[in-house]
């Protein structure tokens, strides 16, 4: 039985790498990523499980990292926005976001991209409605929504053609 109260060492699997950090049980996955691991691509918009800027993939599924305790993530596979581009080459979803102007300020963008990436991993041929449902929990105050749908459709096509 795992038991911890003060700071303890927790092992996380982030973006394919094992990382050990010393944290209190109250540390959220979001703060662990941003503060302890310096992965600031994942954003804190509300810290209350509403806006989706903190979306990361836990075992391939999008979750709000602000409502996930880091200590609960031992042995879970965590993927963040920093893992998408490989060798300086952007992921097709990232390309599509630029191409379709699916962002303005860019603060919600990493979360939007992670939600869409998870969708496309699971469903290579999503409908507009599938896309909208996948990012309903990712708020965008600038109103890039119409272009986010276009970007997801275009990325899906690009991926089907083999990236």
């Amino acid at each position: 039985m795992l038991k911890a109260s003060a700071k303890s060492l927790v092992q996380l699997q982030v973006n394919g790498q094992a990382q050990e950090i010393s944290i209190e049980p109250r540390r959220t996955l979001l703060d662990a990523l941003r503060v302890d691991l310096g992965l600031t691509g994942t954003k804190k918009g509300c810290d209350e499980g509403t806006c989706g800027a903190c979306t990361v993939l836990k075992e391939g599924k999008p979750v709000y990292s602000c409502l996930t305790l880091a200590i609960e993530c031992e042995h879970s596979r965590i993927e963040t926005i920093e893992n998408l581009a490989k060798d300086g080459k952007m992921h097709p979803v990232q390309f599509a976001f630029i191409e379709q102007d699916a962002l303005q300020c860019g603060f919600c963008t990493p979360g939007q991209i992670m939600s869409i990436k998870a969708l496309l991993d699971q469903n290579p041929k999503p409908t507009e409605s599938d896309i909208k449902r996948a990012v309903t929990g990712n708020l965008c105050r600038c109103g890039a929504y119409p272009n986010i749908v276009k970007a997801a459709l275009s990325a899906a096509e690009r991926l089907r053609r083999g990236g």
Binding site: T40, E82, Q94, L103
Partner: peptide
């Protein structure tokens, strides 16, 4: 397309936060 698009889609853009 935005000339600063790549920073914003990769998480590389450093906001004040």
């Amino acid at each position: 397309t935005r000339i600063d698009g790549s920073e914003r889609v990769t998480g590389g853009a450093k906001f004040t936060h």
